[in-house]
């Protein structure tokens, strides 16, 4: 996909999104409520109209080849960088899914293992301290110092933390 095509696709996507926001806001009162001022939907509705108009403006500029993006025939993401971006985004997606299942700490450890060892190709002597150190540091900072509980995943993983809770509380 060229930059020019991407500019068009994204502007159309944003235009559709803006219209959706306007429709959603219009479910509320977008007019004047006597004694209470503008309705709850008025401000978001007009913002969404503004968003849609600015997208139309971008589309007009695209058609007239005004902006550098609307003239560029370069690839939007060049083939050399596709793998690194795709792997990173995929790994982050995996990290977030993993948080729901095995919890923040184990998911982070796996993410670190994957990224440092298999993407960064670092040695095991670098990988292991990072894989263990990051979740331990985050546990100490959040659970201990900030007393903020981070997700532990499915209920079956919770008992694993009981000894640690006894240690810190």
């Amino acid at each position: 996909m060229t930059v020019r095509t991407a500019e068009l696709v994204i502007a159309i996507g944003l235009l559709i999104g803006s219209i959706a926001v306007a429709i959603k806001a219009a479910e509320l009162n977008i007019g004047w409520v006597p004694g209470r001022g503008p309705g709850a939907g008025a401000w978001p509705f007009w913002l969404a109209v503004g968003m849609a108009l600015s997208c139309v403006w971008t589309l007009v500029r695209w058609m007239r080849h005004v902006t550098p993006e609307s003239r560029s025939q370069e690839p939007f993401i060049d083939s050399e960088t596709v793998p690194v971006v795709a792997i990173t985004v995929g790994a982050l997606f995996g990290l977030l899914v993993g948080i729901h299942i095995i919890g923040m700490y184990f998911s982070l450890a796996l993410f670190m293992l994957f990224y440092v060892r298999f993407v960064g190709r670092h040695s095991w002597t670098t990988t292991i301290p990072v894989v263990i150190g990051t979740p331990v540091f985050i546990f100490c900072l959040f659970e201990w110092a900030l007393t903020t509980s981070l997700p532990k995943g499915l209920a079956m993983f919770e008992p694993l933390y009981y000894p640690l809770y006894e240690l810190i509380y």
Partner: peptide, 15 residues
């Protein structure tokens, strides 16, 4: 190396 720093920053972002 950035491949060491990036995952640490991603971890901090997520938490």
């Amino acid at each position: 190396p950035f491949t060491l720093l990036a995952p640490i920053i991603f971890a901090l972002c997520v938490v």
